[in-house]
Amino acid sequence: MPGFDLQLLLHGQYHEWLVAGLRVSLELFALTIACALPLAVVVALLRLSPWRALQGLGATYVEVVRNVPLIAHLLFWYFGAPELLPDAVKQKLYAGNYEFIAAAIGLTLYAAAFMAENIRSGIRAIPAVQFEAARALGLGFLPAMRRVVLPQALRVTVPPLLSQTVILWNDTSIATVIGVAELMYQAARVESAAFRSAEAFGFVTACYLAGSLALTAIAAWIHRRWPVRTL
């Protein structure tokens, strides 16, 4: 077995493939987190809303999405869902980078279901009297949430949301099954072309580890900058 060739990771074609993979992974992660967080807030509010129908809608979304494995979601959004669209729309979608789009949709919907539950717990951690007091002062449901409850709830939610974000970063690797040229995909490509598995997967491991540690550092900073302040 040949030794570990660090040069292979620093220059040349395999280096380029792996760096291109890292870029796609980061893009996929950034897009997903940017869409998943707002969606998660909406779903959490649905579940806490005063109307039964909206509560049911939120609960159904969370349970249906959360109880099916991520790989099934991605295969569904890539192979299944678009087949229901009219031909013209389909052709337009497929002409672009539909692999990436399907992965972003699948990951967003999946991550949002878990994050919604984190945010809902955060909201429930804020004493109900605060919400009641806000309503008593004449604020409606949404303004009371936005001005009084959510600013406190989101601070409480930082630690669980962080683990969810780390999981999401690592979960982007599953997009390889629908042909998204992210880190895992490029590592497999280096492996088949050069048989340098240790180098390729060493690089990938370092990237996921570095990304996760960076997220942890950001969350620690947020936690210090905006500490939990509640009664």
């Binding site: 192979f79 052709q91 497929y94 539909y98 040229a181």
Partner: peptide
């Protein structure tokens, strides 16, 4: 080039017009 885990998936993607 877009690659999949199995040849069936690649063939399926061709049938669906994804390449």
């Amino acid at each position: 080039v877009v690659t999949f885990e199995t040849t069936q998936q690649a063939f399926q993607a061709l049938q669906q017009g994804k390449g």
